[in-house]
Simulated scan of single mutants.
Amino acid sequence: MSDLLEVSGISKSFDGFKAINNLSFSIAEAELRAIIGPNGAGKTTFMDIVTGKTRPDEGQVRWGETSRSLLKMSEAQIAREGIGRKFQRPTVFEDQSVADNLTMALKAPRGAFSVLVWKAGKASRARVEELAAEVGLAEQLHRKAGELSHGQKQWLEIGMLLAQEPRLLLVDEPAAGMTLAEREQTTTLLKRLAETRAVVVVEHDMEFVRRLNCKVTVLHQGAVLAEGSLDHVSANSDVIEVYLGR
């Protein structure tokens, strides 16, 4: 399977602090990957660089079959290329219905005039229903987003990202604040999504990562400390030292 995203030798400093230090790794086309590491390990900066929010001081970020450089693209261009990012706190339009949130997120013409005249047709409504079913919100379409539970808001936001038809989803701590049942449903959802696209989950919660049952990349001081299954990296003496301070 070919690589969809390749990060090679990227470094980034903020006021003398090296947040990313010669970081290199790759993500395959249809892969579920967990990225873990203590606070300050560089997880957020890595996502900022991939999505164009932050530019690295050195290194390359290559994308797709033709290995195009993401560093030459704006945030909007990167999003159009098919990279979606879900932040830790769900950002949904609370006063709008679930259906309206998903409709607004659909991949449609975005010019000033086309936005004014665009109306959801039969195909758009069918797509909204499909997305709602995919994220477990089929029964909630007419409810206001503000009435949803925390977990359901997280799923709605994932649905809004899916509406953009991404090839890579970056998901930041999806399990935070969820009930046990919601966490289990989220695990199932992320695993299923990774069958057809790349899904990168940045997470602190080891139990949640264990449920994902995927390859794990451990970051420390902005570089890859270990990589492999959770059992493999958990047995690594360097990882034990970083996490447990031994």
Rank of each mutant, 00 (worst) to 15 (best):
M104K: 02
D48V: 04
E130T: 10
P109L: 10
A41H: 06
L244D: 07
R183A: 14
P109S: 12
K53I: 14
D238I: 00
S237P: 15
M73K: 14
S237A: 14
L70R: 00
V209T: 10
A181M: 13
L230T: 06
V92I: 14
G42F: 06
R85Y: 11
G40S: 07
F46K: 00
V199K: 06
L70N: 00
L212W: 07
E65Q: 12
G64I: 08
D231N: 13
L244C: 10
H232V: 13
K12N: 05
L131I: 06
F87N: 10
S74H: 04
H142L: 10
E207F: 09
F46H: 10
P166R: 09
T103H: 05
K144A: 09
F93S: 07
R62W: 11
G111H: 12
G84Y: 00
S8F: 12
F113I: 15
M73W: 01
A99W: 08
D205G: 01
G9R: 15
H232K: 15
V50N: 03
L137V: 06
F25K: 02
L131H: 05
L4A: 12
S234K: 13
K107R: 14
L71M: 05
R125S: 11
V135F: 02
G82P: 02
R167K: 15
K122H: 10
G16E: 07
H150I: 12
K12A: 01
D15S: 14
A138Y: 07
D95I: 05
V117N: 07
K72I: 05
V171A: 06
F17R: 13
K18S: 02
A126E: 15
G245Y: 05
R80I: 00
V61Q: 11
A99K: 10
A133I: 04
H232S: 14
S229N: 11
T188Q: 11
E6G: 09
G64W: 01
F208G: 04
Q164H: 01
A30H: 14
E134Y: 02
A123L: 12
G82Q: 02
V50Q: 04
F25W: 03
H232Y: 12
N213Y: 05
F87L: 13
I27R: 03
G9K: 14
E207N: 13
R192W: 08
E147K: 11
R33Q: 10
N21W: 04
I20M: 01
H150C: 08
H150K: 08
F208N: 06
L169E: 03
M206H: 07
L70S: 04
V242H: 02
W118M: 09
G84K: 05
L156I: 08
L23E: 05
G136V: 03
F208Q: 04
G37M: 06
E207G: 13
V233R: 08
D205W: 06
D172E: 05
V50C: 06
V135Q: 06
Y243I: 02
S67P: 00
W118H: 15
V199Y: 09
T54Q: 12
H150P: 03
S237Y: 01
K86H: 07
S24N: 07
R85L: 12
M178G: 07
R143D: 08
L230I: 14
V135K: 00
E81Q: 14
S237I: 13
L148V: 04
H142G: 07
R143K: 15
K18C: 09
T217R: 08
G16A: 08
A132C: 10
I240V: 15
D57W: 03
E58W: 00
K144T: 12
R110Y: 05
V50W: 01
T179Y: 04
